[in-house]
Amino acid sequence: MNIVFKHIIRFIVLVAAQVLVLNQLEIGFGIQFMVYPLLIVLLPFDLGIIYMLFIAFVMGLSIDGISNTFGLHTSSLLVITYLRPAIFKLFGPRDGYDILKEGNMYEMGTRWFISVFGLMLIIHHLWFFILEIFRFDDMLFVLSKTLLSVPLSFLFCLIFQAMFVSKPKER
């Protein structure tokens, strides 16, 4: 399948899953599921950072537009997109990334995915909740929200990958 087409489909499915399903799941304790950062980690390794920033911007705005957050999702998505090259470098293999591969769990391994995507999710959620609450004396509440939401968001991302990302064929 054409790679551009593949990512457009992922974009639409992730936005739809976020605004139509996950935004409606409210289980209390301030927990919010956010699955859309997955798109950023799945983008090709050799894509320029400027393109990625614009993709993140469009994606964030389309989610903000429907869920009445007015730019909160955009802001946090831009932050992790900007930090993506640095994080990838930190956990990258010694001889660089194979540009034919993709940053999903099946091709890069579970350990790589947990450390890279886990770190991105934590930064994303922390930034999101800090901006949302925006008070210093509620820092504990921000941390509890982040710690409760990150594992659940991660779980939803794993489910999404199992459903929409094809596993490489065994040779």
């Binding site: 964030g60 007015f70 730019g71 802001s75 831009l78 901006l131």
Partner: peptide, 9 residues
């Protein structure tokens, strides 16, 4: 882009 997002928010 970040400034735009935060400003609108």
């Amino acid at each position: 882009l970040q400034f735009f997002a935060l400003y609108t928010y």
